[in-house]
Nucleic acid binder design. Structure first.
Lengths: 210, 210
DNA sequence: TTTTTATTCACATGATAATGTGATTGGCAG
DNA sequence: CTGCCAATCACATTATCATGTGAATAAAAA
């Protein structure tokens, strides 16, 4: 049974969602309040829910401020934002503060239900537009120059094999070359990187130093 | 009509997906090859598809390298990764390189279809586990809960030695114990982590999976 | 108290890795 | 055309690792 709490100041929306979720047999939603402050009061007195649906625009403290406070006291509560805002700042601030998902308010009730289930099983529900913005964030943050690999593409292949934990034999099989060729490449890689073991190559690679 | 291309070296999977997508009336999937190089050849000769499904582990150039090259020449193609890899590096590298979505290979055919539709209407499809890792990227401030290491502090010492690229002998010297003790610890570490080489331990550790 | 568990050490053996030496091929630059 | 270099392969030797088996001690848990 998943216990759910709601922080939302629009009474109609709040009641609608609460009734819908509480109706589900694998969920219970007994607490729905209209501010972070009230939710904090409630958490002190009763058992913490598993999931909190949280708006951003609220009377008193904003939902984003609330995330930090609630997660600090109750780190096991999963917080799912449910809001009309789709600007990058609010999205990122929410995620940095500790939200585990971000839905837009036009999301249908069954989709909200599905998102909550997704959340408790280790997922991170996001509306498609939100996911797009999150991904765009990575495309911009690209200007990270790599330290001039020096490695040829074949050598890089071999390094990837090592990082995947493969033996020389398995690397040879993967790229359909002989094990002696693998040896030869690895010799050259060691020279270029000034190392002398698989271990060091893997460490360098995973640290982004190649 | 959405035109789709596939780059995937497993013939069975490739044919399965191609046949399924091509069967949809609002989609066509006429090109399915097993390497980035072949796809680049195809793109030179024929009309570019709207969406490319791309594996990571491929003969020749990796799918991640391929993203950059393809997006540079054909920026309008949306690239959707479809792979077994779920480690943060491969996910982030793919997104930084320009992928618009990231699915794991166990995704069902109808979900793949849905993801493609989602993609062309401005979404960014991701498997739930992937979305979670992307979001965790933002939470780096907060100490992310580790997968319950199970390792004792001495074992963790040994792991650190491995990550530093030390041999058994050097680890023994560092902690002033015998090399056989190091062996014994490493045996136990392998059991706990279900691996059987230094390489895998180092990789797991540097990926934060310990 | 009895039983785990962490930590320590030893001996042994087959597997894998590291390193040396040398060689062939095909592409590219001077 | 010629030398350089990436990529391929072979053979050989020593070093290191992976794994099995066994065991002692002290501390923590049952």
């Amino acid at each position: 049974m998943i216990k759910i709490g709601i922080v939302e100041d629009n009474v109609k929306i709040r009641n609608l969602i609460q009734r819908y979720l509480d109706m589900q047999k694998e969920m219970s939603c007994s607490v729905a309040v209209d501010s972070v402050e009230e939710m904090l009061d409630h958490l002190k007195k009763f058992d913490a829910p598993d999931v909190l649906l949280m708006d951003i625009q609220l009377p008193g403290m904003s939902g984003i401020e609330g995330i930090g406070i609630i997660k600090k006291e109750y780190p096991d509560i999963e917080i799912l934002m449910l809001t009309v805002y789709h600007d990058s700042h609010k999205i990122f601030d929410s995620l940095v503060a500790g939200a585990s998902g971000y839905l837009l308010k036009h999301t249908s009730l069954p989709e909200i239900k599905e998102s909550i289930e997704n959340l408790v099983t280790g997922g991170a529900p996001m509306s498609p537009q939100i996911a797009r913005k999150v991904i765009q964030y990575f495309k911009k943050s690209e200007p990270q120059q790599k330290p001039e690999s020096n490695l040829t593409s074949r050598e890089q292949d071999i390094v990837n094999g090592l990082v995947d934990g493969l033996s020389y034999k398995l690397i040879a099989d993967r790229y359909d070359i002989s094990i002696d060729t693998v040896r030869a490449h690895i010799r050259n890689i060691y020279k270029k990187l000034h190392v002398n073991s698989k271990a060091e190559v893997i460490a360098k690679s995973l640290r982004g130093e190649i």
